[in-house]
Computed example of a mutant assay.
Amino acid sequence: MIRLLRQLNVALRFTLELMGLAAIGYWGFHMGDGWMGWLSGITIPLLFATFWGMFGSPRAPFPLPPKGRLMLEALIFGLPGALLLGLMPVTAIIYLVGVVLNRVLIVYWKQENLIHT
């Protein structure tokens, strides 16, 4: 049973990554009118995904040291929730609670090797 919960926690991590990108895109679409909204709604999530892929993802070609990675995680997972607070506060709070719970379980179950490999 615990093994299944651990696997679900890793799946939750990936889901939170995707939800964070969607939240950043949603925020970007609402911050501009017309083509500026479209431009920011598409390019900002792409920039975040590229930055995460280069420095923070499990197979990053340029991995950061542990403290730098923790700071990057706080930015990549925390900023979407902060941006959504003004647009959809309940959704933002649910997302942020999921992020905190996921990170606590990663530390508790010693899953850092699964997300930093």
Rank of each mutant, 00 (worst) to 15 (best):
M1F: 09
M1T: 12
I2E: 13
I2F: 12
I2Y: 10
R3T: 12
R3G: 04
R3Y: 10
R3I: 12
L4D: 07
R6Q: 12
Q7I: 15
L8H: 05
N9P: 07
N9V: 07
N9G: 00
N9H: 06
V10F: 14
V10L: 14
A11C: 11
A11F: 14
L12P: 11
L12R: 15
T15Y: 08
L16M: 09
L18Q: 02
L18N: 03
L18D: 00
L21P: 04
A22F: 09
A22M: 11
A23L: 15
A23I: 13
A23W: 15
G25I: 15
G25R: 15
Y26M: 11
Y26D: 06
W27C: 00
G28D: 06
G28M: 11
F29H: 03
F29Y: 09
H30Q: 07
H30D: 00
G32Y: 06
G32M: 09
D33M: 13
W35Q: 12
W35R: 13
W35A: 11
W35V: 14
M36G: 08
G37S: 06
W38K: 10
W38F: 15
L39V: 09
S40Y: 15
I42Q: 05
I44E: 01
I44Y: 07
P45G: 01
L46D: 01
A49W: 15
A49N: 12
T50K: 14
F51N: 10
M54D: 01
F55P: 01
F55S: 02
G56M: 01
G56C: 04
S57Q: 03
S57F: 02
S57W: 01
R59D: 10
R59F: 07
A60Y: 08
A60R: 07
A60P: 04
P61L: 08
P61E: 08
F62K: 10
P63D: 04
P63L: 05
L64C: 09
P66G: 04
P66T: 07
K67D: 07
G68C: 03
R69Q: 10
L70D: 10
L70S: 11
L72W: 05
L72N: 06
E73M: 15
A74D: 01
A74T: 04
L75Q: 00
I76N: 04
F77P: 01
F77K: 07
P80S: 05
A82S: 02
L83D: 04
L84K: 02
G86Q: 07
G86R: 11
G86C: 02
M88H: 10
V90P: 00
V90M: 07
T91S: 12
T91W: 15
T91A: 14
T91H: 13
T91E: 13
I93T: 01
V97I: 14
V97W: 11
G98V: 03
V99L: 01
V100S: 09
L101G: 00
L101R: 02
L101V: 09
L101Q: 05
N102W: 04
R103S: 08
V104W: 14
L105D: 03
I106D: 06
V107I: 14
Y108G: 03
K110I: 01
Q111A: 13
Q111E: 14
Q111C: 04
Q111L: 15
N113G: 08
I115D: 00
T117Q: 14
T117E: 13
T117W: 15
